[in-house]
C-alpha cells in the first residue's frame, strides 16, 4: 500500500471512531478504564525518566558553561527551558509511543485476529468507536497531566543533581528557574502533548485494527505502531514548533 492509501484508510477509520456512541454510558466506563490502563500506569516510567533527564541536563549545562563570566543561576534557567520546551512533551511522548502505542496495537490486533472485533460488529456495535474513541479521549485528557508531572520532576531532578554535584547552590537554582520565565512555554508544551497523545492512540489503533493473520502479525503491528507514531510525532513536533513559537 502506498502512503496515500494508508492515510486515506486511517482517516476513514478515525472518522468511524468518532461516530455517535450506541450507549454513551458504556463509553464512559471504557474511558475510565483506559485512563487507568494508559495514563496512571505510565506515571512510574515518566517519573523515572524525567528525574534522570532533568539531572543530566543540569549537570551537562553546568560543565559546558564553566566560565566566570557565566552566572551560575543561568544553569537553572537553561535546564528549565529545555525541560519545559522540548523534553517533557516530546521525549515523554516518544516514551509513551513505545509503552502505550505497542500495548494499544497488540490489544486491538489480538482482538482482530481472535475475531473479537467481528463479535462486536455482529452485535451491531461500531467496533472502531467502542475500541478506539475511549483510548483517544483517555490519553488526550491524561497526557497534559503527565507532561506537567514530568516538568516538575525534571526540574526537581535538576536541582538535586546540581546541588549534590556541587555545580550550583539551591538559591542560585531557584533564582535561575524563576528568571525570565515565560508561562506561554508551558501552554505550548501542553498543546504539543495533546496532539502527540492523539497521534499515539490513533496511529497505534490503526495498526492494531488492520492486523491480518495471527500472533506473528500482531507483533509486527505493534512494532509498526511504535515506529510510525514516533516518526509522526517528530514531524508534528517540527510543524507545531514552527506554528506556535514563531
Amino acid at each position: 500500500m502506498t502512503l496515500l492509501q494508508h492515510i486515506g484508510k486511517y482517516t476513514l477509520l478515525i472518522n468511524r471512531a468518532f461516530a455517535r456512541p450506541e450507549k454513551p454510558r458504556m463509553y464512559y466506563i471504557q474511558i475510565i478504564r483506559e485512563m487507568v490502563a494508559l495514563g496512571i500506569n505510565s506515571i512510574g516510567i515518566v517519573a523515572i525518566i524525567s528525574f534522570f533527564m532533568g539531572a543530566v541536563i543540569t549537570i551537562q549545562t553546568a560543565y559546558n558553561t564553566e566560565s566566570p563570566l557565566f552566572p551560575s543561576y543561568l544553569i537553572g534557567l537553561a535546564a528549565r527551558d529545555s525541560i519545559i520546551l522540548e523534553f517533557s512533551s516530546t521525549i515523554v511522548a516518544l516514551i509513551l509511543a513505545g509503552k502505550v502505542g505497542s500495548s494499544i496495537a497488540s490489544e486491538i490486533g489480538t482482538m482482530r485476529v481472535t475475531e473479537q472485533i467481528d463479535a462486536l460488529e455482529i452485535m451491531g456495535i461500531n467496533s472502531a468507536g467502542y475500541l478506539i474513541l475511549p483510548k483517544i479521549i483517555a490519553l488526550v485528557i491524561i497526557a497534559p497531566f503527565l507532561t506537567l508531572l514530568s516538568m516538575i520532576i525534571g526540574v526537581f531532578g535538576g536541582w538535586l543533581a546540581g546541588v549534590s554535584a556541587g555545580v550550583i547552590t539551591t538559591p542560585e537554582y531557584i533564582y535561575g528557574i524563576r528568571f525570565a520565565f515565560i508561562p506561554y512555554y508551558i501552554t505550548y508544551s501542553l498543546i504539543k502533548s495533546v496532539v502527540f497523545a492523539f497521534i499515539i492512540t490513533t496511529v497505534s489503533s490503526y495498526h492494531g485494527y488492520y492486523t491480518n493473520g495471527g500472533a506473528l502479525e500482531v507483533g509486527r503491528s505493534s512494532t509498526m505502531a511504535v515506529v510510525h507514531s514516533s516518526v509522526v510525532i517528530l514531524l508534528f513536533n517540527l510543524i507545531l514548533t514552527q506554528l506556535l513559537l514563531s
Binding site: T110, T114, E115, Q116, A119
Partner: peptide, 9 residues
C-alpha cells in the same frame, strides 16, 4: 458463535 469463541478477554 465464532470458531475460537471470540470471548472478550
Amino acid at each position: 458463535l465464532f470458531q475460537g469463541a471470540a470471548l472478550f478477554d
